[in-house]
Design a protein around this nucleic acid. Structure first.
Lengths: 242, 242
DNA sequence: GCTTTTGTATGACCGTGGTCATAGAGGCTA
DNA sequence: TAGCCTCTATGACCACGGTCATACAAAAGC
Protein backbone atom coordinates (compact mmCIF):
# COMPACT_ATOMS: atom_id res chain seq x y z
CA UNK A 1 0.00 0.00 0.00
CA UNK A 2 2.90 2.30 0.72
CA UNK A 3 4.56 3.99 -2.21
CA UNK A 4 8.24 3.43 -2.55
CA UNK A 5 9.04 6.97 -1.48
CA UNK A 6 12.37 7.44 0.31
CA UNK A 7 10.99 6.87 3.77
CA UNK A 8 13.45 6.89 6.61
CA UNK A 9 13.38 4.33 9.36
CA UNK A 10 12.56 5.88 12.69
CA UNK A 11 15.69 6.63 14.67
CA UNK A 12 16.34 5.96 18.31
CA UNK A 13 16.25 2.71 20.27
CA UNK A 14 12.95 0.84 20.59
CA UNK A 15 11.77 0.90 24.18
CA UNK A 16 9.53 -1.51 26.05
CA UNK A 17 6.49 0.15 27.56
CA UNK A 18 3.09 -0.81 28.90
CA UNK A 19 -0.15 0.20 27.27
CA UNK A 20 -1.14 1.96 30.48
CA UNK A 21 2.00 4.05 30.55
CA UNK A 22 1.38 5.19 26.98
CA UNK A 23 -2.28 5.87 27.69
CA UNK A 24 -1.26 8.01 30.63
CA UNK A 25 1.08 9.95 28.39
CA UNK A 26 -1.64 10.80 25.88
CA UNK A 27 -4.14 11.49 28.63
CA UNK A 28 -2.64 14.81 29.53
CA UNK A 29 -0.77 15.53 26.32
CA UNK A 30 -1.10 18.96 24.79
CA UNK A 31 -4.02 19.04 22.38
CA UNK A 32 -5.57 15.75 23.51
CA UNK A 33 -7.97 17.02 26.12
CA UNK A 34 -11.59 16.06 25.69
CA UNK A 35 -10.88 12.57 24.34
CA UNK A 36 -12.55 9.66 26.11
CA UNK A 37 -10.40 7.09 27.91
CA UNK A 38 -11.52 4.42 25.48
CA UNK A 39 -10.32 6.44 22.52
CA UNK A 40 -7.08 7.28 24.26
CA UNK A 41 -6.41 3.56 24.55
CA UNK A 42 -6.66 3.25 20.77
CA UNK A 43 -4.02 5.91 20.42
CA UNK A 44 -1.82 4.23 22.99
CA UNK A 45 -2.18 0.93 21.15
CA UNK A 46 -0.80 2.50 17.97
CA UNK A 47 2.12 4.16 19.70
CA UNK A 48 5.62 2.86 20.25
CA UNK A 49 8.25 4.45 22.43
CA UNK A 50 11.81 5.12 21.32
CA UNK A 51 14.76 6.38 23.30
CA UNK A 52 17.17 9.05 22.11
CA UNK A 53 20.49 10.12 23.53
CA UNK A 54 21.63 13.70 23.93
CA UNK A 55 22.32 15.25 20.56
CA UNK A 56 20.58 12.52 18.59
CA UNK A 57 18.26 13.57 15.77
CA UNK A 58 14.61 12.53 16.05
CA UNK A 59 13.77 13.66 12.55
CA UNK A 60 15.60 15.70 9.95
CA UNK A 61 14.61 18.18 7.32
CA UNK A 62 13.50 17.11 3.85
CA UNK A 63 12.44 13.73 5.13
CA UNK A 64 8.87 12.61 4.52
CA UNK A 65 6.82 12.67 7.68
CA UNK A 66 5.73 9.13 8.51
CA UNK A 67 5.05 9.48 12.22
CA UNK A 68 3.39 11.71 14.69
CA UNK A 69 5.81 12.34 17.54
CA UNK A 70 4.98 13.09 21.16
CA UNK A 71 7.62 13.64 23.83
CA UNK A 72 7.31 11.22 26.77
CA UNK A 73 10.31 12.43 28.76
CA UNK A 74 13.38 14.58 28.36
CA UNK A 75 13.69 17.70 26.23
CA UNK A 76 13.66 18.20 22.47
CA UNK A 77 14.45 21.23 20.38
CA UNK A 78 12.69 21.66 17.07
CA UNK A 79 14.48 24.01 14.72
CA UNK A 80 14.90 25.09 11.17
CA UNK A 81 18.30 25.04 9.57
CA UNK A 82 19.34 27.29 6.73
CA UNK A 83 21.53 26.33 3.82
CA UNK A 84 24.46 28.15 5.41
CA UNK A 85 24.01 26.23 8.64
CA UNK A 86 22.25 28.93 10.61
CA UNK A 87 19.79 27.48 13.09
CA UNK A 88 16.71 28.93 14.62
CA UNK A 89 15.02 27.02 17.41
CA UNK A 90 11.32 27.52 17.57
CA UNK A 91 10.11 24.89 19.96
CA UNK A 92 11.41 23.34 23.14
CA UNK A 93 9.24 20.33 23.82
CA UNK A 94 9.03 18.24 26.96
CA UNK A 95 6.66 15.54 28.18
CA UNK A 96 3.23 15.82 26.65
CA UNK A 97 4.22 18.11 23.79
CA UNK A 98 3.92 17.09 20.15
CA UNK A 99 6.85 17.68 17.80
CA UNK A 100 4.98 17.77 14.50
CA UNK A 101 1.30 18.52 14.54
CA UNK A 102 1.05 19.53 10.91
CA UNK A 103 3.36 17.10 9.19
CA UNK A 104 1.35 13.92 9.62
CA UNK A 105 -1.61 15.36 7.71
CA UNK A 106 0.29 15.91 4.52
CA UNK A 107 3.21 13.56 4.99
CA UNK A 108 5.32 15.94 2.96
CA UNK A 109 8.87 16.74 3.97
CA UNK A 110 9.19 20.00 5.86
CA UNK A 111 12.01 22.27 6.92
CA UNK A 112 12.04 21.08 10.48
CA UNK A 113 14.60 19.13 12.44
CA UNK A 114 14.11 17.75 15.93
CA UNK A 115 17.02 16.93 18.20
CA UNK A 116 17.13 15.51 21.72
CA UNK A 117 18.78 17.93 24.14
CA UNK A 118 18.94 15.28 26.86
CA UNK A 119 18.19 11.59 27.10
CA UNK A 120 14.65 11.60 25.78
CA UNK A 121 11.80 9.17 25.12
CA UNK A 122 9.45 9.89 22.26
CA UNK A 123 6.17 8.18 21.32
CA UNK A 124 5.72 7.42 17.61
CA UNK A 125 2.35 6.92 15.92
CA UNK A 126 2.24 6.00 12.21
CA UNK A 127 0.84 8.98 10.40
CA UNK A 128 -2.10 7.28 8.70
CA UNK A 129 -3.33 5.86 11.96
CA UNK A 130 -2.97 9.25 13.57
CA UNK A 131 -4.88 11.03 10.81
CA UNK A 132 -7.65 8.45 10.96
CA UNK A 133 -7.86 8.89 14.69
CA UNK A 134 -8.18 12.63 14.35
CA UNK A 135 -10.93 12.19 11.77
CA UNK A 136 -12.79 9.97 14.24
CA UNK A 137 -12.39 12.53 17.03
CA UNK A 138 -13.23 15.92 15.57
CA UNK A 139 -12.59 17.66 18.88
CA UNK A 140 -8.95 17.10 18.12
CA UNK A 141 -9.30 19.38 15.11
CA UNK A 142 -10.27 22.38 17.15
CA UNK A 143 -7.50 21.57 19.61
CA UNK A 144 -4.96 21.31 16.82
CA UNK A 145 -6.24 24.49 15.16
CA UNK A 146 -5.91 26.35 18.44
CA UNK A 147 -2.31 25.19 18.78
CA UNK A 148 -1.51 26.00 15.17
CA UNK A 149 -2.99 29.44 15.47
CA UNK A 150 -0.60 30.09 18.35
CA UNK A 151 2.29 28.69 16.36
CA UNK A 152 1.56 30.89 13.36
CA UNK A 153 1.06 33.96 15.53
CA UNK A 154 4.24 33.24 17.38
CA UNK A 155 6.24 32.86 14.20
CA UNK A 156 4.85 36.10 12.79
CA UNK A 157 5.41 37.90 16.04
CA UNK A 158 9.04 36.78 16.05
CA UNK A 159 9.34 37.99 12.48
CA UNK A 160 8.42 41.49 13.60
CA UNK A 161 10.80 41.19 16.54
CA UNK A 162 13.64 40.37 14.19
CA UNK A 163 13.03 43.56 12.25
CA UNK A 164 12.36 46.10 14.93
CA UNK A 165 13.68 44.76 18.22
CA UNK A 166 17.33 44.66 19.08
CA UNK A 167 19.06 41.61 20.42
CA UNK A 168 18.75 42.56 24.07
CA UNK A 169 14.99 42.91 23.78
CA UNK A 170 14.68 39.61 21.91
CA UNK A 171 16.80 37.86 24.48
CA UNK A 172 14.69 39.26 27.30
CA UNK A 173 11.61 37.93 25.56
CA UNK A 174 13.20 34.51 25.25
CA UNK A 175 14.15 34.58 28.91
CA UNK A 176 10.62 35.55 29.89
CA UNK A 177 9.27 32.67 27.84
CA UNK A 178 11.68 30.23 29.43
CA UNK A 179 10.86 31.59 32.86
CA UNK A 180 7.16 30.92 32.28
CA UNK A 181 7.84 27.44 31.01
CA UNK A 182 10.77 26.14 33.03
CA UNK A 183 10.93 28.39 36.05
CA UNK A 184 13.80 30.65 37.06
CA UNK A 185 16.50 28.00 36.67
CA UNK A 186 17.18 27.70 32.98
CA UNK A 187 19.54 24.93 32.00
CA UNK A 188 20.60 26.12 28.57
CA UNK A 189 23.90 27.21 27.09
CA UNK A 190 24.50 30.53 25.41
CA UNK A 191 24.59 28.80 22.06
CA UNK A 192 21.12 27.41 22.68
CA UNK A 193 19.83 30.80 23.78
CA UNK A 194 21.34 32.36 20.68
CA UNK A 195 19.42 29.95 18.47
CA UNK A 196 16.22 30.89 20.28
CA UNK A 197 16.81 34.63 20.00
CA UNK A 198 18.09 34.56 16.45
CA UNK A 199 21.58 35.88 17.09
CA UNK A 200 25.15 34.68 17.57
CA UNK A 201 26.84 33.15 20.59
CA UNK A 202 29.16 36.13 21.05
CA UNK A 203 26.39 38.68 21.09
CA UNK A 204 24.40 36.50 23.46
CA UNK A 205 27.34 36.29 25.85
CA UNK A 206 27.89 40.04 25.70
CA UNK A 207 24.21 40.72 26.34
CA UNK A 208 24.11 38.22 29.18
CA UNK A 209 27.09 39.99 30.74
CA UNK A 210 25.10 43.23 30.66
CA UNK A 211 22.03 41.59 32.19
CA UNK A 212 24.27 40.11 34.86
CA UNK A 213 25.74 43.48 35.70
CA UNK A 214 22.20 44.82 35.98
CA UNK A 215 21.46 42.13 38.54
CA UNK A 216 18.72 40.60 36.41
CA UNK A 217 20.35 37.21 36.03
CA UNK A 218 23.15 35.07 37.38
CA UNK A 219 24.84 32.43 35.31
CA UNK A 220 27.26 29.59 35.40
CA UNK A 221 28.30 27.02 32.87
CA UNK A 222 25.16 25.65 31.23
CA UNK A 223 22.77 27.39 33.57
CA UNK A 224 21.09 30.76 33.89
CA UNK A 225 19.23 31.85 36.98
CA UNK A 226 16.78 34.68 36.78
CA UNK A 227 17.21 36.76 39.89
CA UNK A 228 14.61 39.44 39.29
CA UNK A 229 11.77 37.84 37.32
CA UNK A 230 9.70 40.99 37.71
CA UNK A 231 12.16 42.93 35.59
CA UNK A 232 11.35 40.68 32.64
CA UNK A 233 7.63 41.17 32.94
CA UNK A 234 7.42 44.35 31.00
CA UNK A 235 3.78 44.75 29.95
CA UNK A 236 5.02 45.42 26.43
CA UNK A 237 6.69 42.05 26.42
CA UNK A 238 4.55 38.96 25.84
CA UNK A 239 6.00 35.50 26.15
CA UNK A 240 6.55 33.62 22.95
CA UNK A 241 4.80 30.40 22.20
CA UNK A 242 7.25 27.70 23.18
CA UNK B 1 -27.67 33.03 21.01
CA UNK B 2 -24.65 35.22 20.64
CA UNK B 3 -22.74 36.16 23.72
CA UNK B 4 -22.33 39.83 24.41
CA UNK B 5 -18.64 39.72 23.58
CA UNK B 6 -17.25 42.87 21.97
CA UNK B 7 -17.94 41.75 18.45
CA UNK B 8 -17.36 44.21 15.68
CA UNK B 9 -19.83 44.70 12.88
CA UNK B 10 -18.43 43.61 9.55
CA UNK B 11 -17.05 46.55 7.62
CA UNK B 12 -17.54 47.33 3.96
CA UNK B 13 -20.70 47.90 1.95
CA UNK B 14 -23.18 45.01 1.58
CA UNK B 15 -23.31 43.86 -2.00
CA UNK B 16 -26.08 42.13 -3.93
CA UNK B 17 -25.02 38.85 -5.46
CA UNK B 18 -26.59 35.70 -6.83
CA UNK B 19 -26.26 32.32 -5.20
CA UNK B 20 -24.69 31.03 -8.42
CA UNK B 21 -22.02 33.69 -8.43
CA UNK B 22 -21.09 32.85 -4.85
CA UNK B 23 -21.09 29.14 -5.58
CA UNK B 24 -18.77 29.72 -8.47
CA UNK B 25 -16.45 31.62 -6.19
CA UNK B 26 -16.19 28.78 -3.69
CA UNK B 27 -15.95 26.22 -6.46
CA UNK B 28 -12.38 27.04 -7.30
CA UNK B 29 -11.38 28.73 -4.07
CA UNK B 30 -8.09 27.74 -2.50
CA UNK B 31 -8.62 24.85 -0.11
CA UNK B 32 -12.13 23.97 -1.28
CA UNK B 33 -11.31 21.38 -3.89
CA UNK B 34 -12.97 18.01 -3.50
CA UNK B 35 -16.26 19.37 -2.20
CA UNK B 36 -19.41 18.30 -4.03
CA UNK B 37 -21.48 20.91 -5.83
CA UNK B 38 -24.36 20.33 -3.45
CA UNK B 39 -22.20 21.08 -0.46
CA UNK B 40 -20.71 24.13 -2.16
CA UNK B 41 -24.23 25.50 -2.48
CA UNK B 42 -24.63 25.30 1.28
CA UNK B 43 -21.50 27.38 1.69
CA UNK B 44 -22.68 29.88 -0.89
CA UNK B 45 -26.02 30.15 0.91
CA UNK B 46 -24.27 31.18 4.12
CA UNK B 47 -22.05 33.74 2.43
CA UNK B 48 -22.63 37.43 1.88
CA UNK B 49 -20.53 39.70 -0.25
CA UNK B 50 -19.21 43.07 0.89
CA UNK B 51 -17.37 45.73 -1.06
CA UNK B 52 -14.30 47.56 0.19
CA UNK B 53 -12.59 50.61 -1.18
CA UNK B 54 -8.83 51.03 -1.52
CA UNK B 55 -7.24 51.42 1.87
CA UNK B 56 -10.28 50.21 3.80
CA UNK B 57 -9.75 47.73 6.61
CA UNK B 58 -11.45 44.35 6.30
CA UNK B 59 -10.56 43.28 9.80
CA UNK B 60 -8.24 44.67 12.42
CA UNK B 61 -6.03 43.20 15.10
CA UNK B 62 -7.32 42.30 18.55
CA UNK B 63 -10.84 41.93 17.20
CA UNK B 64 -12.64 38.64 17.78
CA UNK B 65 -12.95 36.63 14.60
CA UNK B 66 -16.63 36.26 13.71
CA UNK B 67 -16.36 35.55 10.00
CA UNK B 68 -14.45 33.49 7.55
CA UNK B 69 -13.32 35.76 4.71
CA UNK B 70 -12.71 34.82 1.11
CA UNK B 71 -11.65 37.31 -1.54
CA UNK B 72 -14.01 37.48 -4.51
CA UNK B 73 -12.22 40.20 -6.47
CA UNK B 74 -9.52 42.80 -6.00
CA UNK B 75 -6.44 42.49 -3.83
CA UNK B 76 -6.01 42.34 -0.07
CA UNK B 77 -2.91 42.51 2.08
CA UNK B 78 -2.86 40.68 5.38
CA UNK B 79 -0.25 41.98 7.76
CA UNK B 80 0.86 42.17 11.32
CA UNK B 81 1.47 45.49 12.95
CA UNK B 82 3.87 46.04 15.82
CA UNK B 83 3.32 48.35 18.75
CA UNK B 84 5.68 50.88 17.19
CA UNK B 85 3.73 50.85 13.94
CA UNK B 86 6.04 48.61 11.98
CA UNK B 87 4.18 46.51 9.45
CA UNK B 88 5.01 43.19 7.92
CA UNK B 89 2.84 41.94 5.10
CA UNK B 90 2.65 38.20 4.90
CA UNK B 91 -0.16 37.54 2.49
CA UNK B 92 -1.40 39.15 -0.71
CA UNK B 93 -4.76 37.59 -1.42
CA UNK B 94 -6.80 37.84 -4.59
CA UNK B 95 -9.90 36.02 -5.87
CA UNK B 96 -10.31 32.59 -4.35
CA UNK B 97 -7.91 33.10 -1.48
CA UNK B 98 -9.00 33.00 2.16
CA UNK B 99 -7.90 35.73 4.54
CA UNK B 100 -8.19 33.88 7.84
CA UNK B 101 -8.19 30.12 7.76
CA UNK B 102 -7.30 29.66 11.40
CA UNK B 103 -9.24 32.39 13.14
CA UNK B 104 -12.76 31.03 12.63
CA UNK B 105 -11.93 27.84 14.52
CA UNK B 106 -11.06 29.57 17.75
CA UNK B 107 -12.79 32.90 17.27
CA UNK B 108 -10.06 34.49 19.34
CA UNK B 109 -8.58 37.82 18.36
CA UNK B 110 -5.29 37.53 16.53
CA UNK B 111 -2.50 39.85 15.51
CA UNK B 112 -3.64 40.15 11.95
CA UNK B 113 -5.05 43.04 9.99
CA UNK B 114 -6.44 42.85 6.47
CA UNK B 115 -6.65 45.86 4.22
CA UNK B 116 -7.98 46.26 0.69
CA UNK B 117 -5.25 47.43 -1.70
CA UNK B 118 -7.78 48.12 -4.46
CA UNK B 119 -11.54 48.09 -4.76
CA UNK B 120 -12.24 44.62 -3.45
CA UNK B 121 -15.17 42.29 -2.84
CA UNK B 122 -14.98 39.82 0.01
CA UNK B 123 -17.29 36.94 0.91
CA UNK B 124 -18.17 36.64 4.60
CA UNK B 125 -19.34 33.42 6.25
CA UNK B 126 -20.31 33.47 9.94
CA UNK B 127 -17.69 31.51 11.78
CA UNK B 128 -19.96 28.95 13.44
CA UNK B 129 -21.55 28.04 10.15
CA UNK B 130 -18.13 27.73 8.59
CA UNK B 131 -16.79 25.50 11.35
CA UNK B 132 -19.87 23.28 11.16
CA UNK B 133 -19.42 23.02 7.41
CA UNK B 134 -15.81 21.96 7.81
CA UNK B 135 -16.81 19.35 10.37
CA UNK B 136 -19.32 17.96 7.84
CA UNK B 137 -16.71 17.88 5.08
CA UNK B 138 -13.57 16.38 6.56
CA UNK B 139 -11.69 16.68 3.29
CA UNK B 140 -11.52 20.35 4.10
CA UNK B 141 -9.42 19.54 7.11
CA UNK B 142 -6.61 18.04 5.10
CA UNK B 143 -6.84 20.93 2.67
CA UNK B 144 -6.65 23.45 5.47
CA UNK B 145 -3.81 21.58 7.13
CA UNK B 146 -1.89 21.57 3.88
CA UNK B 147 -2.31 25.32 3.56
CA UNK B 148 -1.41 25.92 7.19
CA UNK B 149 1.68 23.81 6.91
CA UNK B 150 2.82 26.05 4.06
CA UNK B 151 1.99 29.15 6.08
CA UNK B 152 3.98 27.96 9.07
CA UNK B 153 6.90 26.88 6.91
CA UNK B 154 6.86 30.18 5.10
CA UNK B 155 6.84 32.18 8.31
CA UNK B 156 9.73 30.17 9.70
CA UNK B 157 11.62 30.38 6.49
CA UNK B 158 11.25 34.16 6.48
CA UNK B 159 12.46 34.20 10.06
CA UNK B 160 15.71 32.63 8.96
CA UNK B 161 15.92 35.02 6.04
CA UNK B 162 15.66 37.96 8.41
CA UNK B 163 18.67 36.72 10.34
CA UNK B 164 21.03 35.60 7.71
CA UNK B 165 20.01 37.15 4.41
CA UNK B 166 20.63 40.76 3.59
CA UNK B 167 17.98 43.08 2.24
CA UNK B 168 18.88 42.58 -1.41
CA UNK B 169 18.48 38.84 -1.14
CA UNK B 170 15.17 39.15 0.70
CA UNK B 171 13.90 41.60 -1.87
CA UNK B 172 14.88 39.28 -4.69
CA UNK B 173 12.97 36.51 -3.00
CA UNK B 174 9.92 38.74 -2.69
CA UNK B 175 10.20 39.68 -6.35
CA UNK B 176 10.48 36.03 -7.35
CA UNK B 177 7.37 35.26 -5.34
CA UNK B 178 5.46 38.11 -6.94
CA UNK B 179 6.69 37.06 -10.37
CA UNK B 180 5.29 33.57 -9.82
CA UNK B 181 1.99 34.90 -8.58
CA UNK B 182 1.32 38.03 -10.61
CA UNK B 183 3.60 37.79 -13.60
CA UNK B 184 6.40 40.14 -14.53
CA UNK B 185 4.32 43.31 -14.16
CA UNK B 186 4.13 44.02 -10.45
CA UNK B 187 1.86 46.88 -9.49
CA UNK B 188 3.20 47.64 -6.03
CA UNK B 189 4.90 50.67 -4.52
CA UNK B 190 8.25 50.57 -2.80
CA UNK B 191 6.51 50.99 0.54
CA UNK B 192 4.47 47.86 -0.12
CA UNK B 193 7.57 45.96 -1.20
CA UNK B 194 9.35 47.12 1.94
CA UNK B 195 6.58 45.68 4.10
CA UNK B 196 6.90 42.39 2.26
CA UNK B 197 10.68 42.20 2.60
CA UNK B 198 10.83 43.47 6.17
CA UNK B 199 12.83 46.62 5.57
CA UNK B 200 12.37 50.36 5.10
CA UNK B 201 11.22 52.34 2.08
CA UNK B 202 14.59 54.03 1.67
CA UNK B 203 16.55 50.81 1.65
CA UNK B 204 14.06 49.30 -0.78
CA UNK B 205 14.47 52.25 -3.13
CA UNK B 206 18.25 52.04 -2.94
CA UNK B 207 18.20 48.32 -3.60
CA UNK B 208 15.76 48.74 -6.49
CA UNK B 209 18.12 51.29 -7.99
CA UNK B 210 20.89 48.70 -7.88
CA UNK B 211 18.70 46.04 -9.48
CA UNK B 212 17.72 48.55 -12.13
CA UNK B 213 21.34 49.33 -12.93
CA UNK B 214 21.95 45.58 -13.22
CA UNK B 215 19.18 45.41 -15.80
CA UNK B 216 17.12 43.01 -13.74
CA UNK B 217 14.11 45.28 -13.37
CA UNK B 218 12.58 48.45 -14.72
CA UNK B 219 10.31 50.61 -12.66
CA UNK B 220 8.01 53.56 -12.79
CA UNK B 221 5.64 55.05 -10.29
CA UNK B 222 3.68 52.25 -8.67
CA UNK B 223 4.92 49.56 -11.00
CA UNK B 224 7.90 47.26 -11.30
CA UNK B 225 8.64 45.23 -14.38
CA UNK B 226 10.93 42.27 -14.18
CA UNK B 227 13.11 42.30 -17.26
CA UNK B 228 15.20 39.24 -16.63
CA UNK B 229 13.04 36.74 -14.75
CA UNK B 230 15.74 34.11 -15.12
CA UNK B 231 18.10 36.12 -12.95
CA UNK B 232 15.68 35.74 -10.03
CA UNK B 233 15.45 31.99 -10.36
CA UNK B 234 18.51 31.17 -8.41
CA UNK B 235 18.19 27.51 -7.39
CA UNK B 236 19.04 28.58 -3.84
CA UNK B 237 16.08 30.90 -3.84
CA UNK B 238 12.64 29.39 -3.32
CA UNK B 239 9.51 31.47 -3.63
CA UNK B 240 7.76 32.36 -0.42
CA UNK B 241 4.25 31.29 0.28
CA UNK B 242 2.57 34.31 -1.01
C1' DG C 1 47.30 11.24 34.10
C1' DC C 2 46.93 13.67 29.74
C1' DT C 3 44.57 15.70 25.74
C1' DT C 4 40.51 17.31 23.45
C1' DT C 5 36.22 19.40 23.35
C1' DT C 6 32.76 22.47 24.97
C1' DG C 7 31.30 26.65 27.09
C1' DT C 8 32.35 31.30 28.63
C1' DA C 9 34.48 35.80 28.11
C1' DT C 10 36.11 40.00 25.72
C1' DG C 11 38.60 42.93 22.46
C1' DA C 12 39.00 44.95 17.69
C1' DC C 13 37.07 45.84 13.40
C1' DC C 14 33.75 47.34 10.10
C1' DG C 15 29.68 46.61 6.96
C1' DT C 16 24.84 46.59 6.53
C1' DG C 17 21.11 49.11 6.85
C1' DG C 18 18.19 52.23 9.79
C1' DT C 19 17.32 57.25 10.55
C1' DC C 20 16.94 61.91 9.19
C1' DA C 21 17.23 65.22 5.72
C1' DT C 22 16.21 67.31 1.29
C1' DA C 23 14.34 67.40 -3.37
C1' DG C 24 11.70 66.59 -7.38
C1' DA C 25 8.12 64.30 -10.20
C1' DG C 26 3.61 62.54 -10.86
C1' DG C 27 -1.24 62.56 -9.67
C1' DC C 28 -5.38 64.36 -7.35
C1' DT C 29 -8.72 67.96 -5.88
C1' DA C 30 -10.47 72.61 -5.63
C1' DT D 1 -3.55 77.28 -11.72
C1' DA D 2 -2.48 76.51 -7.27
C1' DG D 3 -2.05 73.44 -3.56
C1' DC D 4 -1.45 69.05 -1.55
C1' DC D 5 -0.28 64.39 -1.10
C1' DT D 6 2.07 60.30 -2.64
C1' DC D 7 5.91 58.12 -4.54
C1' DT D 8 10.63 58.17 -5.93
C1' DA D 9 15.38 59.38 -5.25
C1' DT D 10 19.76 60.11 -2.94
C1' DG D 11 23.13 61.99 0.44
C1' DA D 12 25.14 61.96 5.24
C1' DC D 13 25.60 59.82 9.46
C1' DC D 14 26.43 56.21 12.73
C1' DA D 15 25.05 52.29 15.79
C1' DC D 16 23.96 47.67 16.20
C1' DG D 17 25.66 43.52 15.84
C1' DG D 18 28.18 40.03 12.92
C1' DT D 19 32.91 38.19 12.21
C1' DC D 20 37.40 36.92 13.61
C1' DA D 21 40.67 36.65 17.11
C1' DT D 22 42.51 35.16 21.55
C1' DA D 23 42.19 33.30 26.23
C1' DC D 24 40.82 30.44 29.91
C1' DA D 25 37.97 27.30 32.74
C1' DA D 26 35.31 23.22 33.06
C1' DA D 27 33.98 18.90 31.45
C1' DA D 28 34.71 14.81 28.78
C1' DG D 29 37.35 11.33 26.63
C1' DC D 30 41.32 8.05 26.41
Amino acid sequence: MRTSSPTADPKGEPLESTLEARAELFQDAMGFSGISDREILKLAAMATLRRFTKGQMIFEQDQPCDYFHLVASGLVKVYICSASGFRMTYLLARRGEPLNLVGPFTGDPRFLCAEAMQATDVAHIPRHGFVRFVADNPILFSNIMAILSKAVDSANSRLIDMVEKRVEERLLRVLLTLLDKFGSEIRLTSAELAELAGTTVETTLRTMARLRSLGIIESERGQITIIRPASLKNPERLPLWV
